[in-house]
């Protein structure tokens, strides 16, 4: 009996040791759901011997909240925020400055216009992951519209009313509403924000669910016909068998984003994280990522490794004359307005 207890205790403490002391050779990646290809992780693990654990979140806001709550140490070594949230996280001191990104062996593959981007001009905090746009997608077989106007989404016709789904978080939806109304991103004008709120509240009558996860599953089951969506992810839905899934490029434009790898404050596995950043920038690996998530990337040479599916992906080709407007880091005043609009909408 005693021996068994001792054995048990020893094995528990061994488990502990293996999980905390031998942290080296581990990497905790915190990424959007359905955004990390197993193939990429497997390849990285095989090449470096580093064990990767992936946790997921559903919005930039959730990531920001988790980093804030971490109190200077979240346990994550890498996260993948969009451009404006990188800026906020730098300002709030939530991510680490990283030495020598520009000196990494694969940095040379990054297209020149994406070296030192506006949100990280000195390239000390981030390396590129993927880029794309946010708008909405619909099942063409069940919907008679053609996705040419943002208002089709915000003022759904009777045929889709009740079968519309919207992202769970405000950031992109509010920007889409700005596009629909012709107002500016990060507006500080209460009248404009009031108009955004009215539009969203009007839309809510037709909304079945607010969610940023399982979007393709929801469209596939026919639970909803119209869903706020990302270009690449909607392409993935198409690949998975929703043949009529069409991504809308309304004339008002779509909301652009550029996701990057950053290192949250207090990250323990710094070298492993840097190895991963460098690894992802290699054209071959970046192509694995794009072939999986179907988004564009900042590594031109990755084209050589893209699958035919990816080369022929219709949902991610921006038609001529459709503007792509990138989300910006709003100041606190306008951010507070956005939060208020969303809280009012959610009640």
């Amino acid at each position: 009996m005693k021996e068994k207890v001792i054995k048990l205790l020893v094995s528990i403490s061994l488990l502990f040791a293996s999980s905390s002391l031998m942290a080296a050779g581990k990497l905790n990646l915190y990424n959007w759901a359905d955004y990390t290809p197993d193939a990429l992780i497997d390849k990285f693990e095989a090449e470096t011997g580093i064990q990767v654990t992936v946790d997921t979140y559903d919005s930039n806001e959730t990531l920001l909240a988790k980093l804030q709550a971490g109190g200077g140490s979240t346990g994550y070594d890498l996260a993948v925020p969009s451009q404006h949230f990188v800026e906020i996280m730098i300002k709030e001191g939530l991510i680490e400055k990283i030495d020598g990104i520009t000196g990494m062996s694969n940095y040379k593959y990054v297209a020149e216009q994406f070296q030192g981007p506006s949100f990280d001009p000195t390239q000390e905090y981030s390396t590129p992951w993927q880029m794309g746009s946010a708008s909405w997608a619909y099942r063409a077989d069940s919907y008679s519209g053609n996705g040419s106007s943002m208002m089709e989404f915000f003022k759904p016709s009777d045929e889709v009313c009740g079968k519309v789904a919207v992202f769970k978080s405000p950031e992109e939806v509010v920007n889409m509403a700005h596009l629909a109304l012709g107002s500016n991103f990060c507006s500080e004008d209460p009248n404009e924000m009031q108009a955004v709120m009215d539009l969203l509240i009007e839309q809510k009558k037709c909304v079945a669910v607010y969610s940023s996860e399982g979007i393709n599953e929801r469209l596939m089951s026919g639970e909803v016909i119209m869903h706020a969506h990302w270009d690449g992810y909607s392409q993935v839905g198409k690949w998975e068998g929703v043949d009529d899934l069409t991504y809308a490029y309304p004339k008002e434009g779509v909301v652009g984003w550029f996701d990057s790898l950053v290192m949250p404050k207090g990250a323990k596995n710094v070298e492993e994280a840097k190895a991963f950043m460098n690894f992802v920038m290699h054209p071959e690996n970046m192509a694995i990522l794009s072939n999986f998530a179907a988004y564009a990337n900042a590594i031109p040479e990755s084209v050589n490794y893209l699958s035919d599916d990816m080369k022929n992906a219709t949902n991610i080709q921006v038609p001529d004359g459709i503007p792509v407007k990138f989300g910006q880091a709003c100041n606190k005043e306008s951010q507070a307005l956005v939060d208020k609009v969303w809280t009012k909408l959610m009640q």
Partner: peptide, 16 residues
């Protein structure tokens, strides 16, 4: 936080 995801939390992210 990172690296301490438990089974129910993982299931939740899958259900989502």
């Amino acid at each position: 936080g990172g690296g301490s995801t438990t089974l129910p939390v993982y299931i939740y992210s899958m259900v989502k």
